[in-house]
Amino acid sequence: MRTRVAWLAGQLVLTLAVASVAVFWVLRVLPGDSAVVALGVNATPEALDQWRAAHGTDRPLIVQYLDWMGGLLHADFGTSFVTGRDLTALILDRVQVTLIIVGLGMLLALLVAIPLGTLAAVHHRSAWGTVIGGASQVGVAVPNFLVGVLLVSFVAVRARWLPAGGWVPPILDPAEFWRHAILPAVALGTVQAAIITRYVRSAVIEVMREDFLRTARASGHTRTTALVHHGLRNAGVPVVTVVGVQLAGMLVGAIVVERVFVVPGLGSLLVDAVNQRDLQAVQSIVMTLVVLVVAINFVVDLLYTVLDPRLRTGREVRA
């Protein structure tokens, strides 16, 4: 168990190191001189030199990289080259917003998907199962921003039940916070619910074919109680992986949904930075997202170890 945690942590660090080099390379080195990017091709050499000295881009690349990384390790994202704003405060502020809607969306998705997927699996040979299966299949195909756009149109603009966009932090006004957070979370969660429903369904169907479920029935369980006592926990192991992967995907999916609802999250910040060619901000925002994605994968791997005793003892599972 301990060796496995150490091994996973090692992988985490290695992945982050490689990823940070890649991000730095792609965003700082490949696009060319940041000074030219910032000041335009017509800038005088003196102005460029001045800019470089001011922002430290005249130093060797490795020093710039280490400087950047050193800052990240202390949660210091530096200052934007373009806007001159303090990125640290900005990113930390925005990341909360994104995490809130992603978290709410996933919660919503799980609340819908787990019962629905199980139901679809149990009845997978009957009409009910087909209906749920078909509906989730369609749901997976719908882009989350279409859901968002339709929600805005019907719930916000036409019915005027909820605001079409904007954001109020929960500490400021909890009621208003909820009114603003619900639609983005629903837009993110609906599609996720469809995706996870499908995975829950196939995991449960898979587990219903397992010999040990037959054993449970042979020792006095009904189909249903066998599934509840032995099936769901076993089906949970693959579902946890999927939830992890989807959570990572939602962080990125949130970029688009934040755009639809004008939510000031990390995604909006990223798109603005891209449009302003603020590569230094892009670099730090992307790295923040990568850290979150990798951290989620790490937690999933850990959970896996906790859920499955076969991974705990280190002894190989016989094929």
Partner: peptide
């Protein structure tokens, strides 16, 4: 189900997969 495991019970062929691996 009430009879299975009390009045009649069964042992299967595959010992490797017949027990719940998580319990």
């Amino acid at each position: 189900a009430r009879l299975r495991g009390s009045a009649v019970s069964m042992v299967f062929q595959e010992p490797m997969t017949a027990l719940d691996p998580l319990v």
